[in-house]
């Protein structure tokens, strides 16, 4: 079993519904975005190409963050999901530095919402590193990750990549991950 996500860039228009859903579902602090949408622009006016690139934790099969973690707080489950054991994390941020996809966030006092009131933030996160967990609690209950569920354009597909009948398996055939030559083997793929 290996959970994977395929994002169709031809459908993403950068509306950030996924980002909002993610922030609500995980009640993340200010500046912490487990998932976010980057704007990529190329060319020169008026011949400009622009597209939106949603990024999140890529849940690599060969994760750099896991390799560098000094306490074993980062681990990979049998479902192919990279998770963080909050009780083990000592907040050294080596993983944040090492992650090639800027998916990890260190949660400190500064990340508390600035200029807006705090809402539902758990203090037990303070001083640890956090990131996208593919909404594994929801997924185990049979639900979809918040970002997948929220996307009005159905640009995101989530499922078991090892199941040959799954939609995600079919899409992966013509999808490619980011930084694919580096051997991280991410579980998030893109179609363009």
């Amino acid at each position: 079993m290996k959970y994977a996500m395929v994002i169709d860039l031809t459908k993403c228009v950068g509306c950030n519904a996924c980002t909002a859903a993610c922030k609500i579902d995980n009640s993340t602090g200010f500046g912490v975005k487990y998932g976010q949408v980057l704007e990529v622009e190329a060319g020169r006016f008026p011949d400009v190409t622009k597209f939106y690139l949603p990024i999140l934790c890529m849940h690599c099969e060969n994760p750099e963050c896991l390799k560098v973690c000094p306490t074993g707080a980062t681990f990979r489950t049998k479902e192919g999901v990279v998770l963080i054991d909050r009780d083990r994390c000592m907040g050294c941020r080596y993983c944040v530095v090492a992650c090639p996809y800027m998916a990890r966030y260190f949660y400190n006092d500064l990340k508390r919402p600035l200029g807006v009131p705090r809402m539902d933030l758990e203090d037990e996160r303070l001083g640890t590193v956090e990131k996208c967990d593919f909404c594994i609690d929801r997924v185990r209950e049979g639900d979809l990750p918040a970002c997948v569920k929220a996307c009005p354009y159905e640009a995101r597909t989530f499922g078991d990549a090892d199941d040959p009948n799954s939609r995600v398996h079919g899409l992966m055939a013509r999808a490619k991950p980011l930084k694919e030559d580096e051997g991280f083997n991410p579980s998030v793929y893109y179609i363009w």
Partner: peptide, 11 residues
């Protein structure tokens, strides 16, 4: 502008 999740996207 005062909704935290939204403000964080366009701060």
């Amino acid at each position: 502008r005062n909704v935290p999740a939204l403000r964080d996207i366009n701060p």
